[in-house]
């Protein structure tokens, strides 16, 4: 179950990043969690036949490239903090929107909450409203030339309370 979930998650994340921002990723080895001081994390919760939260942790350098590519900026143009936050939340929204039907099919309905950037000085689970005892049901590591991107999928009915609908 976990292997199938991670295979689907890897396919969706790689495909989405390629189509969205022309970024080509390779599945990486599962290692330690990326250091918080060189990464940015975000989360998006969802509710439907099953409920949960998708967490995305991305290297600062990869996020800079993601935002720049989405905006169509030249290599020497800098993105702003707002651009990077917006690019992260929009990317999470698109990945979550594509991942859930890939897992559960398109006959079911999910409500996807508002994605958010997590505070750097807070534990990821705490910032995302995920119960501390809940472990991820799937984890995917993606490697880029400039850094890394890690996705965690937490599934648990108790998370439904924290879903903020648009």
């Amino acid at each position: 179950m976990r292997a199938k979930l991670e295979e689907t998650m890897a396919q969706v994340t790689i495909d989405t990043l390629e189509k969205l921002a022309f970024m080509f990723a390779f599945p990486g080895e599962e290692g330690d969690d990326p250091p918080r001081d060189s990464t940015v994390s975000g989360s998006v919760s969802f509710a439907g036949p099953f409920s949960g939260t998708l967490v995305m942790t991305i290297s600062v350098e990869v996020l800079q490239e993601l935002a720049g590519n989405m905006l169509g900026l030249d290599d020497d143009e800098e993105t702003t903090q707002d651009h990077r936050s917006d690019a992260l939340t929009e990317t999470m929204n698109i990945i979550c929107g594509n991942l859930l039907p890939a897992i559960a099919g398109d006959d079911v309905v999910f409500n996807i909450g508002v994605p958010k950037v997590l505070p750097a000085d807070q534990e990821i689970k705490e910032g995302a409203g995920i119960p501390d005892e809940l472990e991820p049901s799937a984890r995917v590591n993606l490697d880029f030339d400039e850094g890394q991107c890690v996705f965690f999928l937490f599934i648990g009915k108790e998370i439904i309370r924290d879903v903020v609908m648009p």
Partner: peptide, 26 residues
């Protein structure tokens, strides 16, 4: 232009006359 993946919701929008494009798009 949306990430919506539910067939029922997409059909409901199409019944309202909208045309649907899925994100990410080309």
């Amino acid at each position: 232009v949306s990430t919506e993946g539910s067939k029922a919701r997409i059909e409901r929008l199409e019944h309202k006359g909208a045309v649907f494009i899925h994100k990410p798009f080309t």
